[in-house]
């Protein structure tokens, strides 16, 4: 049992670890990379090395200068991280109330609301084309991408939060708080939402990760300017050596881990109403 588990975990982890290790190699022609240790791949991916051809700069901007030391941030990269976070933000505002309504109330057409909230599980290509047709003005804009991400990933938020709501005595919690003197909005914000925090946090993490990696929709809707993460990744994989692709993938992986940790932290602290 334990052995099986170890084998499975190892099987899943080896490619990730190998890629990460490979990103510091200068050559990777066989199974195992060689020529350690170089930071050249990471420099090129991060746009710190002199760029050639498709390797555009990542828009390093000076954050602050202090006594000769200049700290710069890859503003374009942050911007594209923000695109996916924007989608998550919309999903929180829209998805949590929908999940609550479907889990808590029986109303005419509740299964229709449920079905419609899961409908955008269509592939990004389809939504992307339909989106461009319906809102030509939004094509290529950041706002268009954010709205598209939120539409595409909303079902994951609704499903994660709804199952959390359904696993707790939602109606009893609400009635307890109401009888103790809390108005409905106050009950919702100080009791219902904080009690569902684990579902909300996991929903946000799933939405962000999937939005950041959404290639199809980004490919169709994006036109110019700051590149979404998925396109950035694709550019580095298709036009580069193995080792540089490994660096790009590893960087993506690091960003995902960082955002996941960040959302977890915000989730556990942000809902803390003690004090």
């Amino acid at each position: 049992m334990t052995a099986t588990l170890l084998v499975v975990v190892a099987f899943l982890m080896v490619p990730v670890v190998l890629t990460f290790v490979g990103s510091f190699a200068s050559e990777w022609s066989g199974v195992v990379p060689s020529g350690f240790v170089t930071l050249q791949n990471w420099r090129e991916v991060l746009g710190l090395a002199a760029s050639i051809g498709s390797q555009r700069s990542m828009g390093w901007d000076t954050l602050f200068s202090l006594g000769g030391v200049t700290v710069a941030v890859p503003s374009e990269l942050l911007f594209s991280v923000g695109l996916a976070l924007g989608g998550v933000f919309i999903n929180l505002l829209v998805g949590v109330p929908i999940a609550y309504a479907v889990a808590r109330y029986e109303f005419r057409g509740d299964e229709w609301v449920n079905a419609i909230s899961v409908l955008p599980l269509v592939p990004g290509v389809i939504l992307g084309v339909a989106f461009l047709r319906a809102y030509p003005n939004l094509s290529g804009t950041s706002f268009g991408l954010i709205v598209g991400y939120s539409l595409l990933k909303a079902p994951f938020m609704v499903m994660a939060v709804r199952s959390e709501f359904e696993s707790m005595p939602l109606r009893r919690l609400e009635e307890s708080a109401r009888s103790l003197g809390a108005s409905w909005p106050r009950t919702f914000l100080t009791v219902i939402v904080p009690n569902a925090r684990s579902g909300i946090v996991s929903g946000a993490i799933i939405c962000w990760t999937l939005a950041a990696a959404e290639f199809n929709f980004s490919y169709i809707v994006w036109a110019k300017g700051t590149q979404p993460l998925a396109l950035f990744l694709q550019r580095h994989i298709s036009n580069s050596s193995f080792t540089k692709a490994a660096a790009a993938v590893s960087m993506f992986f690091c960003i995902i881990v960082a955002i996941t940790v960040l959302l977890q932290q915000v989730g556990s602290r942000g809902f803390d109403t003690r004090g």
Binding site: L173, S176, A177
Partner: peptide, 30 residues
């Protein structure tokens, strides 16, 4: 009169305690 203005105490089979608060905060909520 809406429930929040009736001043009734409710105890349920499911307890329905607020998991985002300590025991003391639960009791002090009202």
């Amino acid at each position: 009169v809406p429930p929040e203005n009736r001043n009734v105490g409710l105890v349920f089979q499911e307890y329905a305690l607020f998991d985002n608060m300590t025991v003391r905060e639960n009791v002090a909520f009202g």
